[in-house]
């Protein structure tokens, strides 16, 4: 039987959740025995080369590219996991959600105290993804199967959950592992 395949990505996140993933330390050697990685910053595969079993999503959706990638993950992965506070509720990027996008862009590109932009141009290249009206949690865009809270999710939580998903067994998570910060 071939190994289960894992894909991961960071949308509107800070890569902290991926860092926490690496905090499983030497267990990563066990993980490599158990699974194969596909599209992920961990092995630097940029696009899907096959269908995957588990997709880990860090970060919420703040622009059209995030939505595109998230939908692609939904198509390619059997199980999709929201991984960290940003994927679950938007997290710190969502702090802009009660500010109109126009004001956010003006603060960043026009009126910020350290900004030099004499022509007053906002980023408008057609290659750039378009920023959304607000930052959306992943489960408000596509169906997510599991949620792992934490900022970042504890390494032990990531390990326990991945291990259980790979081996298809039930788990009883200890109280200390589920934290929102």
């Amino acid at each position: 039987m071939s190994k289960p395949v894992i894909a991961t990505t960071s949308l509107a996140g800070c890569f902290g959740c991926h860092m926490s993933f690496l905090d499983i330390d030497e267990r990563i050697l066990d993980l490599i025995e158990l699974v194969e990685f596909n599209k992920s910053p961990i092995d630097d595969i940029k696009s899907f080369t096959k269908d995957c079993d588990i997709g880990l999503i860090e970060g919420g959706c703040c622009n059209t590219e995030n939505i595109h990638i998230l939908k692609e993950f939904r198509k390619k992965c059997k199980i999709l996991v929201s991984f960290g506070e940003c994927a679950i509720m938007g997290g710190l990027p969502a702090m802009r959600n009660d500010i109109p996008v126009k004001e956010c862009l003006a603060e960043a590109y026009l009126s910020g105290p350290s900004t030099v932009n004499e022509e007053g141009i906002l980023p408008n290249d057609e290659e750039l993804p378009i920023i959304l009206d607000k930052v959306y949690p992943c489960h408000e865009i596509v169906k997510m199967d599991y949620h792992l809270p934490g900022c970042p999710p504890r390494a032990d939580l990531i390990w326990e959950v991945l291990h259980a998903l790979i081996l298809d067994v039930d788990i009883d998570l200890p109280y200390e592992l589920i934290k929102y910060d």
Partner: peptide, 18 residues
């Protein structure tokens, strides 16, 4: 929320301006 094991809320976020 920890006691009840809430992993994510079932309702959509409102992001009200406060």
């Amino acid at each position: 929320a920890y006691r009840f094991g809430i992993m994510a809320p079932r309702f959509p976020y409102q992001f009200n301006e406060r």
